[in-house]
Design a protein around this nucleic acid. Structure first.
Length: 200
DNA sequence: CTACCGATTGACT
DNA sequence: GTCAATCGGTAGA
């Protein structure tokens, strides 16, 4: 495993979203180390994507989306947190939303944070995984290529993974573009059977 | 200051 | 499958 790099993130956002499948998201806090394998992502485009938080232009909330690539963009929704990886060059304004993990390390701590011992429910959903890993707004803008607090490891020899591409979940304000990437058949991804079926 | 709403979740039929 | 709770951020008066 090798730390993610700025070069990795400074590519078209759909490409990065696909490439992040199979990578490991890691979080070290005072309470301990927690981690999981990324099994579901969504791309939010820089232009013409009315569902992207960057669509209305830079403001205080989405500022890190317009910052350098390879940093975290953490936002609040429905009193919960979601985490993204900022992609492409600084000033562009696009990111990859991490939507689900297969739990890896620190399972006991994740169970306490989530209030359940059901493995499948620990990290299945964008706000669930941030709760399980203890990711808050304090990590908004954090560089994820340094291996401290919050980072991503990329496998050196990525195994071939069968990835299904579908429309994004919960997006109402944009066309249903195929921008969601899930590990085919994984039980750790969010969404219904139908939502995880490739578009015909 | 109040009003509104969402890249969601969990409880329920 | 349906539906409402949730609350911080933002817009507007």
């Amino acid at each position: 495993m090798t730390l993610i790099t700025q070069e990795f993130c400074d590519r078209p956002v759909e490409q990065v979203a696909r490439a992040l499948i199979g990578a490991t998201l890691c979080r070290r806090s005072r309470e301990g180390l927690t981690s999981g394998v990324i099994v579901e992502t969504e791309a939010y485009l820089p232009e013409g994507d009315s569902a992207a938080h960057s669509f209305i232009g830079p403001n205080r909330k989405n500022a890190s989306m317009f910052g350098p690539p390879c940093r975290a963009y953490v936002y609040t929704i429905h009193a919960r947190q979601c985490v993204n990886v900022v992609t492409e060059a600084q000033g562009i304004g696009c990111a990859v939303l991490i939507r689900a993990l297969e739990p890896l390390g620190g399972r006991a701590l994740m169970e306490v944070r989530r209030g359940t011992d059901v493995l499948r429910d620990l990290c299945r959903g964008p706000a669930r995984l941030t709760e399980a890993l203890g990711i808050g707004r304090d990590l908004d803008g954090w560089p994820i290529d340094r291996g401290t607090r919050l980072w991503i490891d990329i496998p050196d020899d990525p195994p071939a993974i069968d990835v299904t591409v579908t429309p994004r979940i919960g997006v109402t304000s944009a066309e249903e573009m195929p921008l969601r990437f899930v590990v085919a058949g994984s039980s750790y991804v969010s969404g219904t059977r139908r939502q995880n079926t490739p578009i015909a």
